[in-house]
Computed example of a mutant assay.
Amino acid sequence: MFARDPAHAIELIDKAFQEADVDTLVSLYDDAAVLISTELAPGREIRGKQELRDFYARVLQPGAFSVAQIKTHVVEADGIALFTSRWSLSREGAPTKSFIATVVFRQQPDGGWKDLIDSSPAVLGH
C-alpha cells in the first residue's frame, strides 16, 4: 500500500484498522516501527513488523472497532513528519474514548510515507 503523504497514511491506517486488515495495516509501518498503545497494550512497546503483525492479529476483529480523526495537524521537514491528532475509538459495548495521538512518519525511498513511531497514550476527558 502506497501512502502519498502522512495524512493519506493515516486514512489508510484507520481503514485497515477498522477492517481488521492486518497485512495492509502492517505494510503501512516502517520496518523499524514502534507502537505504543496504552488502550490495547498498556505498558508495552511493540517493535518491528513481526511484533506488530502478532499484536494486530490478536486484537483486531472485523467490525470490532471504529476510529475517527477529530482534529489533525502535520508538520513536515526533510522526509520526516510529525502528525498529531485528537481521535476517537469506539468498540461494541464500551463508551467511546477520545485520545491524543502523536505519530512520526518517515518518507521512504520510493516517495511513500510509513509510520515510524505511533503513540496515543493520553486519554482525554469528555
Rank of each mutant, 00 (worst) to 15 (best):
V75W: 05
V75R: 09
F99L: 08
V26F: 12
H126E: 09
T38K: 07
A7H: 05
P121S: 08
T24R: 15
W87Y: 10
Y29S: 04
D54N: 15
S27G: 14
F65L: 15
A3D: 00
A77L: 09
S85T: 05
A16C: 05
S27N: 15
E51I: 08
H126G: 12
S98N: 08
V103Y: 00
E39I: 11
I46H: 03
Q50D: 14
H73A: 06
R44M: 08
I70K: 06
F83L: 05
T38Q: 12
V59I: 15
E51K: 13
G79C: 11
A32F: 06
T84V: 08
V59D: 12
H126V: 10
F65T: 14
I13S: 03
I10E: 09
A33R: 05
L12P: 00
I13T: 08
R58H: 12
D23M: 02
V123M: 08
I36L: 08
R44N: 07
L124M: 11
L60H: 12
Y56H: 15
P121Q: 08
A16P: 01
L25D: 01
A81G: 02
L52T: 02
P121M: 10
K114G: 00
S66E: 14
D30S: 14
Y29H: 14
D78W: 11
D31V: 14
G63W: 15
H73S: 06
A122T: 12
Q108S: 05
R47K: 14
G112E: 02
G125Q: 13
P42I: 11
A64P: 13
S37W: 08
Q18R: 14
R91W: 05
K71L: 04
F2K: 14
S120K: 07
A122L: 08
D115F: 00
A20F: 07
T24S: 14
V123G: 06
W87P: 01
D14S: 13
Q107E: 06
A81D: 02
A41K: 09
P62H: 13
S27A: 15
L12T: 01
I70T: 06
Q69L: 06
L25P: 02
D14N: 13
P42T: 11
L82I: 06
A68E: 09
V22R: 11
D118Y: 00
P95S: 11
V104M: 07
